[in-house]
Every structure is written in C-alpha cells, then in structure tokens.
C-alpha cells in the first residue's frame, strides 16, 4: 500500500517503510475551562535518515505533538508505530526499551541538565540506565560522544553551569545520541541561540545525520531554520497539519493560505525595504484551542475564505502530486 503512495515514489532515496508512522494522533486536555484540542488528529511519517520539519506559531500544538510521539504526554487517541511496533498503550517498562531508539532535545538543554552532575556523568547516564558496557567502555564512549558534538575532552570533568547556551545544547545532543537512537525529536533546539551559534548547532545536526543516519523531527517556529534543515516540511495550525511537502515544493509553490502568510512574514535580506504583499490582519492571535473556529480553523484569518470553509473541515489531500498535501478547500 505504501509503495503506491505518491509521496514515496517521488523521493526514491526514502525507504518505502517509514521509521515512524503517526496516525490520527490526538492529545486533548480536559481542564476546568473545557477540553483543549492541542493535537487534533495528525498523521505523518518519518523515514530513516530523514529530517521532517514541523513549523507553526506558538500554541499550534507542535511541541505537544513532539512530546506525544515520545509519550511524554499521553495521546487521547491514534497510533504511533516505530518500525511497525505500536507505542500507544505500551507499558512504561516496555516503553523504556523503545526509548533507546527515540530521544528528544529541548530548547533549553541547560534547564534539563542536573547542575550537580559533571558533563561526563550526564552523558554517561543514559548508557548506565540501559546497562550498556562496563564503566571503562562507557567512559570511552563518553569521550567519543564529546568529540562528536565538538566539545573538548576536558569538558567531561566540568559542570553544566560552566558552559554557554550553545555548548549546553551540544551536551544535550550528546546525551540524546548516546544510545544511538533512530529518531531524535528536536524541539526548538536553536531558538534561544544567537545566529552565529545557531549556525554551529544546525551544522552539527547536519553532520550527525550524515555520520549516523539518524532521523530528526525538527520542531520550530522559525520557517527559515526549518526550511534549511528539513527534507520535508509540515505546517501546523491549531492542532492540525495544514500542508506538508518537500522543502523545495513548499517555498516554490505554497498551497495553503497560512503557509503563504508565514512565508511572507519571514524577514528576508533579499526583500530589502519592501513588504511582501503583507496585508493588515487584525486577528493576530491564534484562536483558542478550547473553542476552535468551525470548519477550517484558519478561516477567520483567511483572505480567501468562502462559506464552505466555515462549514466543512478540509481534509489533507494530495495536490500537485509529489507528496505535496494540503488541507484547503480552495487549493
């Protein structure tokens, strides 16, 4: 069935069988204010050694989706299969085994690092928890990992506070790749960094993927960063994917009005002193996920919306072929 999917015919370097297959995944939070549909029925696939970018503005549910894939938050429905093995419903014990293959890097790795541990201990921890190697073997592996992420060997004996934001992100990456995972979910990994340091970390991710064949789900609000690192890009709006396409197709022929709005808003050196046909939009906030608009969630902000958009939820369907899918009645 997958072989017949045009998405994979068009990208022969990808294996037909996905590494990760997410189907109709939903995360609903029940609170005093009602039910928040943070993730509302998302399907996507990630292939070995591939980077799928996930872009959207704050509150669109992209981080919740990333956490749900690792089951750091519990999905309300849907399926997450890693190499065909269902993760939803797996016990925490059984899940621990799968975690070796599935890791995460956060925006502020510094906050995720225990300040009382040395960097060496921090990087060794996942190896120890999973009972890998002897102490000496683990130490050797920590030394290799430090080199892999571009940190000096003497970093092992120092504490996290002695490192800058960019270096702490390197430490977080070393921990994430210690168990040689197949997929790393990177949640805004460079958003807190200065542009010169951001480039260093993006290059490091690029090199790690080339050397180890790891796949990334790269989550960011920054379309230019996502576009730079990704093979394919998914655009998320209020709990749903509105468009997914190969990176070139997305910027050459964006099909969803929201994608076009995002692209027009990205500051660009090439567009000096010229606005990219940006209109004035009074709805400059996402609607609440507690009471999302009817039909297409984007219709209140959409310059093209017609009656059907208010009434009917658009499905994510193939447009112009080549694995380019869009959820818009008018595309």
């Amino acid at each position: 069935m997958l072989q017949s999917n045009p998405l994979y015919r068009s990208t022969p370097e990808l294996k037909a069988k996905p590494l990760l297959a997410v189907e109709d995944l939903a995360v609903h939070y029940r609170t005093a204010r009602g039910t928040s549909r943070a993730v509302d029925g998302i399907s996507l696939e990630i292939h070995q050694s591939e980077t799928l970018g996930l872009v959207g503005e704050s509150g669109c549910g992209k981080s919740t989706l990333g956490r749900a894939i690792l089951r750091l938050v519990e999905p309300s429905r849907g399926s997450i299969r890693l190499d065909g093995r269902e993760l939803v419903g797996l016990s925490q014990t059984a899940l621990r085994g799968e975690r070796r293959r599935l890791q995460m890097v956060f925006q502020d790795s510094g906050a995720a690092l225990d300040p009382r541990w040395t960097v060496g201990q921090l990087i060794e921890e996942p190896l120890r928890v999973h009972g890998i190697g002897s102490l000496a073997e683990r130490r050797a592996r920590v030394a290799r990992l430090l080199a892999d992420v571009g940190l000096p060997a003497d970093a092992a004996a120092r504490y996290p506070h002695a490192f800058s934001g960019g270096q702490r992100q390197r430490i977080g990456l070393a921990r994430a790749i210690a168990l040689e995972p197949d997929l790393v979910v990177c949640d805004e990994p460079v958003s807190a960094l200065d542009v010169s340091i951001q480039a260093q970390i993006l290059n490091l991710l690029h090199d790690l993927q080339a050397r180890r064949g790891v796949a990334f789900l790269f989550i960011s609000h920054d379309l230019s960063v996502v576009e730079h690192v990704s093979d394919r890009v998914a655009v998320m709006y209020l709990g749903r994917i509105v468009e997914i396409a190969a990176r070139e197709a997305l910027w050459r022929a964006p099909a969803h009005p929201y994608t076009r709005k995002l692209l027009a808003a990205v500051p660009s050196l090439e567009r000096r002193g010229r606005r990219a046909g940006r209109g004035i939009d009074h709805h400059d906030t996402l609607p609440s996920p507690y009471s999302p608009p009817s039909g297409c969630h984007f219709h209140p902000r959409c310059p093209m919306a017609v009656e059907r958009c208010r009434a009917e939820v658009p499905s994510l369907r193939v447009t112009s072929g080549a694995g380019h899918r869009v959820a818009c009645h008018l595309a």
Partner: peptide, 24 residues
C-alpha cells in the same frame, strides 16, 4: 559572517551553513 550564518529560504540543496567559530 552574520549574513552567511543566516539560513535562507530557497537556498537550494540542504547544506552546511557558514559558521562563525567560537563565541562572543
């Protein structure tokens, strides 16, 4: 260096960015 280190939309094939080594 700052200009080169900036990811750009539509810059062609996936590639490394020109990075400024070290830190401020």
């Amino acid at each position: 260096g700052l200009i080169a280190a900036r990811p750009r939309i539509g810059s062609g094939a996936r590639q490394r960015l020109a990075e400024i080594p070290g830190q401020v």
